[in-house]
Design a protein around this nucleic acid. Structure first.
Lengths: 154, 154
DNA sequence: TCTGAAAGTTAAATTTG
DNA sequence: CAAATTTAACTTTCAGA
């Protein structure tokens, strides 16, 4: 699918607010409503827009603390990684998990009410998986989003 | 603000799809439309929902590769960290940046077209900031989301 | 805090240029 | 791709429980 400048404008507007009406979106990008509607549908169909979602602040729900837990696994096999993810990623304190190259095999981001909850997750849940060789916990002090995603490599 | 079970249902539904109509949301959570409408408004006002957004797949825009760049800064001061973030976080390849405790001070997540772009960002942009002492680049092999965020610590 | 109904607004599909 | 049209669906407000 070819991404035109007008598609970038649509992507920018919808990332900033996915709930604006099709009418307002059309006005903002300077196309007819029917055209705008069709282009949004195509962006979804092409997999450029993966979902429309509401962002929720864990802190506002009583989980003001975030941490990264770096995990080293042994043996290092695809199956071990998959099994580890399946074992931990559904825990309610997990925000996401990333599989990496390098010393650390998996990086887990958690949001919790207090450091006690990190301890419980890290030392009860994570280290109870047999293939976990070692872990390190890092407190998240700040998190910043990059620029809005509107185009390929510049 | 008190989060009732019905609010969790609203949060779950809106995270899964922020574009469903208020009518459908009301039907799904079992409340009248007017009540549902009011509760969503309150969740936004209370800062529980921070924004409604469209998730975009960088790969579908021609940036199929992601990496984490771990950065160590010297001297380690609040101002150095802030200045570093200001210098790199607006680069178009940056998805987000996290300030951490531990060896690594900042973790930058990037989405790029090829490894050549990582090299350019890491060795042109990042290491050109004087306070950067060292960096390590890790390829992202896989990324998994945790469960939907609906409540405080369980 | 909730409901139900009324009034105004918007979406979605179609047709035509 | 735009404009116009039409029907159906939706949002928003408010009186009242």
């Amino acid at each position: 699918m070819t991404i035109l400048p007008v598609d970038r404008a649509i992507l920018a507007a919808l990332q900033e607010n996915s709930r604006i009406s099709n009418r307002e979106l059309a006005a903002r990008v300077g196309l007819a409503e029917s055209t705008t509607h069709e282009r949004v549908r195509r962006l979804v169909d092409a997999g450029v827009i993966t979902r429309f979602t509401a962002e929720v602040d864990p802190a506002a729900l009583g989980r003001p603390m975030q941490a990264l837990i770096a995990v080293q696994l042994r043996p290092q096999s695809a199956e071990v990684v998959t099994r580890f993810l399946d074992a931990v990623v559904d825990d309610p304190c997990v925000l996401d998990a990333t599989v990496l190259s390098g010393e650390t095999d998996v990086l887990i981001r958690v949001a919790v009410a207090s450091s006690e909850d990190i301890r419980t997750f890290a030392w009860q849940k994570v280290t109870s998986v047999p293939s976990v060789r070692s872990i390190q916990t890092h407190i998240v002090y700040e998190h910043r989003r990059g620029p809005t995603l509107t185009a390929g490599a510049q």
